Amino acid sequence: MQRKPTLVSVELNEDSASLKLKMDHTLEDFKGHFPQYPILPGVTQIDLAVQYAREYFGLSGSFGGMEVIKFQEPILPDMVVTLSLTWHAEKQKLYFRYDSDKSTHSSGRMMLSEHA
């Protein structure tokens, strides 16, 4: 059971990360969302952003809610996307954005405390 996409490349800075991800058709989250036209659910996109932020920025605190979330274009099986993450420690906010060569797929910001 595959839960995470294939990590193609990572670029890290002090408070930002750019991850190129292949959204493999074998990802568990594609199953059942929709059988005839599978797309990556928005909740999965948010969850992946939080998981990678915790991994690359060392965040261990709790999720505090979402502010602005936009889902513009579906992410389809086997699509390669770039997940851009920016951590604003002073605001305790994580900004994320999924882009591909074709378009912006989703973006938003959420509150996430640094420590549990």
Rank of each mutant, 00 (worst) to 15 (best):
1 M>R: 14
3 R>C: 08
4 K>Y: 12
4 K>A: 11
7 L>D: 02
8 V>K: 14
9 S>T: 02
11 E>W: 02
12 L>G: 07
14 E>K: 15
19 L>T: 02
20 K>V: 07
24 D>L: 06
24 D>E: 12
25 H>L: 13
28 E>F: 15
30 F>D: 01
30 F>V: 09
34 F>S: 12
36 Q>S: 15
40 L>T: 03
41 P>L: 08
42 G>L: 10
42 G>W: 06
42 G>T: 05
43 V>F: 13
44 T>M: 12
45 Q>F: 09
46 I>F: 10
49 A>T: 02
50 V>G: 10
50 V>N: 12
51 Q>H: 14
54 R>H: 04
58 G>T: 03
60 S>K: 13
62 S>I: 04
63 F>A: 11
65 G>M: 07
66 M>P: 07
66 M>D: 03
68 V>I: 12
75 I>N: 05
75 I>G: 06
77 P>L: 10
78 D>H: 11
81 V>C: 09
82 T>G: 06
82 T>K: 08
84 S>N: 10
85 L>K: 03
88 H>A: 07
88 H>S: 11
89 A>M: 06
90 E>Q: 10
90 E>G: 05
91 K>E: 05
92 Q>G: 08
93 K>C: 03
94 L>G: 02
95 Y>E: 00
96 F>R: 04
101 D>P: 04
101 D>T: 07
104 T>W: 00
105 H>F: 01
107 S>L: 03
112 L>P: 00
112 L>D: 00
113 S>C: 11
116 A>K: 13
